[in-house]
Design a protein around this nucleic acid. Structure first.
Lengths: 196, 196
DNA sequence: AGACTTATATAACGACTGCTATAAAAATAC
DNA sequence: GTATTTTTATAGCAGTCGTTATATAAGTCT
């Protein structure tokens, strides 16, 4: 059943993906409404009718980003060993960052550093999404410890924090212009910290 | 001999340090002229007469930041072994980030992610400063390799890149709200990647 | 058909941005 | 003293920010 009134002429999901791309590349404050509307192919009133305001649009875009990321990570988590999972995760992340045309950083990293002044709401939202990703690593490491892949003296939480930190660092380095081989060498060294 | 004209009523060096603090916390675009002038205790015309414009002021503040950082690092580089140096560097950086009231991130990291749209000039300036720091690590690692502290199969450049990446990652994590103990555990794990 | 409801584009709002013209103040030069 | 030079604060420039009032277009409901 079609709703009353004039039907909207754009696909809200596709428009959200376009907005995500703009936020991803420029951050919250760096993305202007005019740039967003232009990328989304709609006019400001349509944006505000569909998404509320800039902050709500950003949160919706962030949710979308986190969902896509969660799905990708969920697949990678199924590698036979935690070590293979981590290597695969590095490989996948580096491939993305080094790909021409892609945003060469993690949106959560960029957002953490750029949305400090945009109100606590966005910062909290960002922290929650970061925690989700780290929780996936933590769970996988716990399982690996239970299965004997990791030594009993290993703290899965510390290990998850360490690899999240390296992943974040890679994001910075990619944003600074590092190429694929360079990032791969760093990931290789980071894996040397794997518990023996 | 005092110059002609009316003498300036503020200390340019102190004003620059105040500007550095504002840029450090809010990034280039996030720092407004009004906030800068307020922090520096001067009015806009004084700012423009003394520093040119916002971009030049930022570059001056960045130079100041890099100089202070370089001096601190130079001291730390003199530790008896490269490993002790690296541990000391982690300790010092973490202490700073975790200190209440301090900017809880590296200005070069924040700048790399926030000044992408502010013109290539600033981005290049940022890259140069990043390279300076990494070059100090590289030189110290080369020396360690020459002295036999590092195995012959170790690539000092890769190692420098790895530790820079971890340091950058710690900066992100501190900005995300991580405390001192958490950062220390990560640094401890990062040191496990030290060549055996 | 006409009433109602929703989406659309245009244009504009007040607030802020980086920056500067103007004029007064404070020093030296002659 | 008067002229010159530089710094100062006030006020305002044109432009952009996020957001919205207005009016028109495009649908469903009765």
């Amino acid at each position: 059943m079609a709703p009353m009134g004039r039907p909207r002429e754009f696909d809200a999901a596709k428009a959200l993906d376009k907005a995500l791309d703009v936020f991803w590349r420029h951050g919250y404050e760096g993305a202007s409404i005019s740039e967003l509307t232009q990328a989304m192919g709609i006019s400001p009133p349509s944006l505000y009718a569909a998404f509320g305001n800039k902050e709500k649009l950003f949160r919706a875009a962030l949710d979308r980003y986190a969902e896509v990321r969660r799905q990708l990570w969920a697949e990678l988590m199924q590698a036979p060993t935690a070590r293979a999972m981590m290597e695969g995760l590095f490989e996948r992340v580096i491939q993305f960052y080094a790909q021409e045309g892609n945003p060469n950083c993690c949106m959560l990293v960029k957002g953490t550093l750029t949305s400090g002044d945009c109100g606590q709401v966005i910062a909290d939202h960002m922290s929650a999404k970061r925690a989700e990703s780290e929780a996936m690593l933590l769970e996988r490491f716990r399982k690996a410890k239970d299965e004997g892949e990791l030594p009993v003296e290993t703290d899965p939480a510390d290990l998850a924090g360490y690899f999240m930190t390296v992943l974040d660092g890679l994001s910075i380095r990619a944003a600074a212009g590092a190429g694929r081989e360079e990032l791969q060498k760093i990931a290789y060294l980071a894996m040397r910290g794997w518990p023996a």
